[in-house]
Write a protein that binds this DNA or RNA. Structure first.
Lengths: 343, 343
DNA sequence: AATAGCCTTGCAAATGTTTTCATAGAAAAT
DNA sequence: ATTTTCTATGAAAACATTTGCAAGGCTATT
């Protein structure tokens, strides 16, 4: 019992392979009667069409590649889900790869995706290796950058302006009257998201004359455990800031837990603000003030745009969509103690 | 400028296509000199081999399918990451699909994966539709069930005994002296994980003579927001339990936040236990007592087993690996108030 | 009644690669 | 010097499908 192929099905239905192929891909071209016979033969034989053979014919492979820094982090799980749902509804299957924030690995993974002849490719952010950009240009396949927006991006992009995200967060702290502010960010090498947010925040602080002390600026990985312990160490010192601007909500949650552990009350003694508004940020106690990045919306739009580009088979499409950010004020930020006394 | 294929590269290198193919797949069969020429031609032309054509030849497609209920939930993100890392190291690429806890959707997705001729397939849990089982049997492709262990499973499996997980959690509460216990679980239809845990817990409670009140048992989706609000409602009533056994850590985190919101102190006035030990469970305040499911370990073992089955091309392999559970005692559970007085 | 046009189907070529078999030349053994 | 054994390469078949072209049978039009 070998696997049934299209000629087996054809024989079983008493028609030619060509007709079976048509019945599957262009049902309107074959008469209702033969279609029924063929459906029956397919059912009976357990035939499953071979996409590889189809793709070889220059047709679509019906796959879309998605490359992310990591999957196991709340940060990207939500976009991935939304993106997958959207393209999946249109009959595509997702080829997933994750590179652990390493752009050389990313290059190798993207190459593999091209080997599989993905119909389109989505990547996170606009930071990529030179080789990656060259390969993408050669392949003539629609490629979309997700998560980041830049008006002058080399690739089509759908996402937010991370600089603005940093600004919004910083402005909120400044407006509340904070002057003693700490910053907790992940490494900014190979990570344009974090870099943009940090730059935006620093610009605002400088314009407002807020001095950033070096020992209140720490670098931690995207990881609650390490964020919590590093921040606990920072907050344990004698001289501590009245507010913490965190590179994202994962780190901000770490900050909230660290404060809870040390008995520092939020927002009375410490304000914490994050970026992202991930699942859980609205539920932590105290609930987290953050700059909302609408992950689901980004994933859905990205899916639509990319499916559209594929169906127009337009590798040179250009789209730059800026998704709006919102400052979500919750319970983790407030005026610093001295300002409260003064006001 | 069309895309270079293997004959283009061959011409460029001054050899036959067969030699190029060999240089790529069995480098040891071609002389160092020609290999160099070919590498150069590949580099120069930007050639990327076509896996579809390769797969069509009856060779491996170098893809592995993974079907999950959902990706956007901490629960599965970690296994997915570990599994992906493992198979990716061996040269495979992941085809991902998520069905939103619907087994008919799952059937359709698995069919699509088979269309793409995945070399192997991993699914979550042992609950699947009849059609799915039939299709899997017909396809002669290694299939592995992840996350769940059962000694009599129809499919090879690697995972934990969910019944035991429920028992461990229940025993811990009983041992602490709790008698007034609430249970918060997701829907158990089409979800053997939740079903097993619930059954295990109930068995222990009955054996211990603990009476489970209906109005202390609620059903919520896997979702912090809804878990928190439903639990807050439960805890807001006059008559409330001294302990909450939660179907997993996501729900347990919701319980912790709900208690915090209501000013109910954990563990003095309420004990909370979860199942899973997801990222964050060790950092919440109070830190969460839970039954640890080693997600990373499961993902890695699963990846190894499945790659092994593929390389032996053994569709009928059978493996049943039971991964050990551990009760992780943290700060969210303690003796009930009356027991403390008595003791 | 004859012709034109449409609908349905089959034939065969094409797709990009791998692999079996064959061959030519070189190296080794006699 | 002749035969044997290797090694490196090429020619061609095979893989499962799609599609352009052609043809046969109808219906509709005149």
């Amino acid at each position: 019992m070998v696997k049934p192929d299209i000629v087996f099905v054809a024989r079983l239905a008493g028609v030619s392979p060509a007709t079976v192929s048509r019945a599957i891909n262009h049902p309107e071209l074959v008469s209702a009667a033969t279609r029924r016979k063929i459906d029956l033969a397919i059912e009976k034989s357990g035939y499953i069409r071979n996409r590889a053979a189809q793709a070889m014919h220059g047709k679509r492979s019906a796959t879309i590649g998605l490359v992310m820094p990591t999957i196991s982090n709340m940060i990207f799980a939500e976009v991935t889900q939304a993106f997958n749902d959207t393209v999946s509804d249109q009959g595509f299957t997702l080829l997933l790869a994750s590179h652990g924030y390493d752009l050389d690995t990313e290059y190798r993974l993207i190459r593999k995706l091209f080997e599989h002849r993905v119909d389109a490719l989505a990547v996170i952010g606009l930071d990529h290796s030179h080789g990656t950009f060259r390969m993408i240009a050669e392949q003539r396949v629609p490629v979309l950058a997700i998560w980041n927006y830049a008006p002058d991006s080399a690739l089509p992009c759908i996402g937010v302006d991370n600089r603005e995200a940093g600004q919004l967060a910083a402005q909120h702290l400044v407006a509340l009257g904070h002057r003693r502010i700490g910053m907790v960010f992940p490494s900014t090498v190979d990570n344009d998201r974090a870099r943009g947010r940090q730059a935006g925040a620093i610009a605002v602080f400088q314009a407002a004359g807020v001095e950033l002390k070096d020992h209140w600026r720490i670098e931690v990985p995207y990881n609650i455990a390490q964020a919590k312990s590093a921040i606990a160490e920072l907050l344990g010192r004698d001289d501590r800031p009245t507010a913490l601007l965190c590179g994202n909500d994962v780190i901000a949650q770490g900050a909230i837990y660290a404060a809870a552990r040390l008995g520092i009350s939020i927002p009375q003694a410490l304000s914490v603000i994050g970026v992202g508004d991930f699942a859980g940020s609205a539920q932590v106690e105290p609930t987290l003030t953050t700059v909302r990045i609408p992950a689901r919306q980004i994933g859905v739009s990205a899916g639509q745009v990319i499916v559209d580009a594929v169906s127009r088979s337009d590798p040179d499409f250009m789209v730059r969509t800026r998704i709006d950010l919102d400052l979500i004020m919750r319970a983790s930020t407030g005026m610093p103690a001295d300002a409260r006394r003064a006001g």
